[in-house]
């Protein structure tokens, strides 16, 4: 136990970096994912095709491979803003198709009857989207989006293998120093991760109850 208490500053620094990775790449993935989702439901066929190919390729590539590309091959192309920024880029790109799918399924999940009703009472395209479709779609999108962010929180650990000092990196460093107390150290790190994921899970449950669409 003393190995954990002695190294608490190390863990806290790692925790800060994990949270930083989560928040920055979460926001980035949200923006990129919205754009991809928009392309995917756009009336223009070529945009739809492009977004579909992008989604399929990124979703079927292991995160490790993407982060490897960011950490080793981008610097080789003389683009090296530091490993933290590179990891953020990788995590953003990897998470964006999952965000896009969540948003798209939310929009598709709104019943056709809603759109038909909106049209038949005389609302135009913009009006029915703004007043009828999107308010329902966004509510349905929130719980799956939080699940995507929970997965992102766990995925930040992979960045620890690519020179970013976050919780997993902290765990590796401390276990190298104190090989006698591996169990306590790893359980402490697990608690930090659970702090993030369980909190997000509780929020997801709350939001789900609060914004549920009655039908």
């Amino acid at each position: 136990m003393d190995a954990v208490i002695d190294n608490l500053p190390v863990f806290l620094e790692g925790f800060r970096n994990t949270l930083g990775l989560l928040v920055i790449s979460g926001v980035g993935a949200l923006i990129l994912g919205m754009i991809v989702a928009g392309l995917r439901i756009s009336p223009i066929a070529s945009f739809r095709g492009f977004a579909t190919v992008y989604t399929e390729i990124i979703r079927n590539t292991p995160l490790t491979l993407i982060l490897f590309f960011c950490a080793f091959l981008l610097p080789y192309l003389q683009f090296s803003p530091g490993y933290f920024a590179l990891a953020v880029i990788g995590l953003t790109v990897y998470t964006s198709p999952f965000v896009a799918e969540a948003v798209r399924s939310g929009i598709n999940g709104v019943h056709v009857g809603q759109a038909e009703a909106a049209r038949s009472i005389g609302l135009g395209f913009g009006q029915s989207l703004a007043f009828v479709i999107l308010p329902q779609a966004l509510r349905m999108v929130v719980p799956p989006l939080i699940n995507v962010f929970i997965a992102l929180a766990k995925n930040t650990s992979v960045a620890g293998a690519f020179f970013v000092f976050e919780l997993f990196g902290a765990a590796r460093k401390v276990t190298n120093d104190r090989g006698d107390q591996v169990l306590a150290i790893l359980l402490a790190v697990a608690v930090f991760y659970l702090l993030i994921t369980v909190t997000l899970g509780v929020i997801a449950g709350r939001v789900e109850k609060r914004v549920a669409v009655l039908r």
Binding site: K154, T156, S157, V158, V182, A190, L194, T197
Partner: peptide
Amino acid sequence: LEFFRGMPVLLMMLFILLV
């Protein structure tokens, strides 16, 4: 189950390897 689902796989791998 909640414990396993909330943990990164990578951490579990390291955990099992070391312990």
